[in-house]
Amino acid sequence: MEDSLSASGKILVMPGPGHFLLGFFNASTLNEWRTPNTIVLRINGRGESFHCHLEYCSSRWRAEAGVIGEIVRGERIAAKAIPCGKVYAWRLVYDPKGGQGNGLITLTLGNETATCKITAEHRSDGASFTHFGLLPVLKAWDDAGQVSLNELTVNGRRFDLARDPKWDGFNNRRTYETRNTRPRFDFGWSPTRHAGGKAAGELGGLIFRGDCRYKERMAAYGDRLSLLTLKTKLSAGGKLSMLRGVSDSSASIGFYHSTWSLHQNPAQDQGIPMDYLGINIEGPSSEGFLFYPVYRVHGAIAAAYDRNSGTALRIYPDGKSHEWSLQYDPAGSDGRGEIRVSLDDQSCLLKLAPGARAAGASFDRFGICTPWIDGNSVTAYFDDLHYTCSPAEDESK
């Protein structure tokens, strides 16, 4: 991200679907979307028109974006509908000294302009680029589309596309079938050893977010427990490996209820399942993937560790093995109750809200349980698991 970058040319997007990236990327880090080590424009076909986004992703899976249209931070992205079937001049420029010295990306498409500032933290992550070209959006969504490019100039070098430029191609003329499609679930026991456990055999797989509006779009896989409550000390831990992750995805492991945590209901005002206490692997695209405690009582009271605090634990979809733990102490935080989560040598603490313990929750399973608001997928595995199975002796009398 220390070098100036530029590309320009003409583009024709045909009517129909489609979703692809055009810009600078690193061929060794093509692992889901948002794709690390990229500075790109993203074209999303919408029938007779298309949307054009401007985005980057650092080497640590942290991203920001702009759009031809309007972004109201924290509220909405209002992309402008750009007519298909017309030729537009475009130009993509990255200035490492722009944006108050952290870097600035500028996109011009026809008469429209979008900008995206690199944040100081993301600039410190760094990013490296090995290629310029076309790249599919690496997630299970959207159909194929058609695009044509011409009069192409990259970093001052003009390409004559009247003949094959002999660019580096990888699977770019390929038809394939995949079972990684939203909202398909494929998790449970696996004979693999991704998490780095003592022996083969582990828990995990492809975990999409659930959707509480439809019974068939929620899923869980967990061990049966004696009934536990928020009056009981709870603990869990083991080893973990995250292989892949997409923006707007979640994977959860923890204590849940086989009925209430999978209860069908029409509202999607809360992503955390009812009667749940555990850990989320999730995060806003600006922060990559985080590992943090969450809970919800038998009712509306719910909370998650502040993902924007800067102190949430980070995890990366790089296949590395980690030690993790969860400790719930009902007497912690002056009797309110608290959840402490650790990942390797880091930890964070979530205090239960006043009245949460009194509202109560019950758990009869430990394992993976999908969130209630739909979205993309995480591929993760857990091994060498240990967890509370029954109430403490003095509380079971």
Rank of each mutant, 00 (worst) to 15 (best):
T130P: 12
E177V: 08
R34D: 10
L206V: 14
G133H: 04
G23W: 05
G133A: 03
T153C: 13
I315K: 06
W372F: 15
P354E: 01
A251N: 07
I272L: 06
G156V: 07
I71V: 13
M242Q: 06
D364V: 04
G355Q: 02
N37A: 07
I68H: 03
R213N: 13
L12C: 02
E2V: 11
I339F: 11
S261W: 01
P96Y: 02
N155I: 06
C389W: 11
K10R: 09
A200E: 13
S390H: 14
R179D: 14
K397D: 14
S321N: 12
K351N: 14
G288F: 07
L149H: 01
D383L: 00
G69D: 03
S226F: 13
V341P: 00
E395T: 09
R213Q: 15
L326Q: 08
Q100P: 05
E216C: 06
L206P: 12
F132Q: 04
L92S: 02
C84Q: 02
T379A: 14
S285A: 11
D394W: 15
G69M: 06
S362H: 11
L243H: 12
G45C: 09
S396Y: 08
C212F: 01
F159T: 03
M242F: 07
T35I: 10
S58N: 04
C57N: 15
A236W: 10
G310C: 04
K231G: 08
I118R: 06
E202A: 09
A144W: 14
F187E: 01
L152F: 00
A302D: 09
I77T: 14
L277G: 00
S252V: 12
P266Y: 06
V87G: 03
I301D: 08
E287T: 06
D223A: 15
F208S: 12
G103V: 03
I77Y: 03
A144R: 12
Y276D: 00
S333V: 14
Y387H: 07
M14H: 09
R365K: 10
E323W: 07
A140S: 14
G98I: 04
Y256L: 05
P273A: 07
Q100D: 15
